[in-house]
């Protein structure tokens, strides 16, 4: 492979990876923006989304990309339950941030173990038999490509929702100043409920898209969730453009870093990136 097409090949791979990372992190970011909590149940719900998509495909032959929609709805319901039953009752606690961190962490462990009991640790995968997409000398993985498209579409929808709708405006208001919003008559409980639903729904969509790329196991979300959290912190908590920027930086550091050295240094690359960015801009790239 000549150096130029090699460069473009790696570039394409890094860019698609960045899109997948974006999809992983926007839901997490949204929930942080409004609730000011890091939702550790995000990864396990991604895994649930992947299973939903897998079973719909295996049992009913539903295309996993369509399955994403159903995963969105079902994971939103999980979000609804998590919010109303667990998060909301402790939301007035003075240590809400810390309590919610532990709480969602526990919810995550619970979800992973329920999945273990229901579906065991057997690896599963969706077989779509899609040939790679070729553009000139570079070839792109079809599951990554469609995953990337879903990421773009989901991000655009979310952006539209937050930026252009009344509900989105209210969400932004709650995110900016919860108490003032409440005084102005915004139903903050409803807003945080919807936010958690949308956030978890996005986790479900992520799972659906990932089911065509990774092996579907109860552990699926865990590794990725850690990366998504890093991305959110790098990009700036609560910021969408930040989530995208963080994803691009980490994906490029991973792909190019691995190519020029060894994959063993991959965690080093992304942790060094994290440190440097946090030292230079402690609130993340787009943080004020």
């Amino acid at each position: 492979m000549d150096p130029l097409s090699l460069f473009f090949q790696l570039l394409a791979q890094a860019f698609l990876l960045a899109l997948i990372y974006t999809l992983m992190s926007i839901g997490l970011n949204l929930v942080y923006g409004v609730m000011k909590i890091v939702n550790w149940a995000h990864g396990p719900v991604v895994m649930i989304g992947a299973y939903i998509s897998y079973w719909l495909f295996t049992l009913y032959g539903i295309n996993p990309y369509m399955g994403c929609l159903i995963a969105f709805l079902m994971c939103s319901l999980i979000g609804y339950a998590i919010h109303d039953l667990l998060l909301h009752p402790i939301s007035r606690s003075p240590q809400f941030g810390a309590s919610a961190l532990l709480l969602t962490y526990g919810i995550g462990i619970f979800i992973v173990n329920v999945a273990r009991v229901l579906w065991t640790d057997i690896l599963r995968g969706v077989n779509l038999d899609q040939p790679p997409i070729k553009i000139g000398s570079i070839s792109i993985s079809a599951p990554y490509f469609y995953g990337g498209l879903i990421a773009v579409f989901a991000t655009w929808l979310l952006y539209y929702y937050i930026d252009r709708t009344m509900l989105g405006k209210a969400t932004r208001a709650v995110s900016d100043d919860k108490e003032t919003s409440e005084l102005l008559g915004i139903g903050t409980k409803a807003i945080s409920r919807i936010t958690v639903c949308v956030g978890m729904g996005l986790a479900g969509v992520t799972g659906g898209a990932l089911s065509t790329i990774f092996a579907v196991t109860p552990e699926l979300g865990n590794v990725l969730a850690l990366k998504a959290t890093t991305i959110v912190v790098v990009g700036g908590l609560g910021s969408f453009s930040g989530a995208f920027l963080g994803s691009v930086i980490l994906a490029f550091a991973e792909v190019f870093g691995t190519y020029v050295s060894s994959p063993l240094y991959q965690p080093l690359f992304y942790l060094i990136t994290l440190f440097v960015i946090l030292i230079v801009k402690p609130k993340g790239l787009t943080g004020g």
């Binding site: 492979m1 090699l6 090949q9 790696l10 791979q13 990876l17 990774f214 590794v223 990725l224 850690l226 990366k227 994906a251 991973e254 792909v255 190019f256 870093g257 691995t258 190519y259 060894s262 994959p263 063993l264 991959q266 965690p267």
Partner: peptide, 17 residues
Amino acid sequence: YEEYPKGLTDFSAILTK
């Protein structure tokens, strides 16, 4: 010969090598 750490999610660079 390549070693990779546990939890690696993207192998594209190794495979390109």
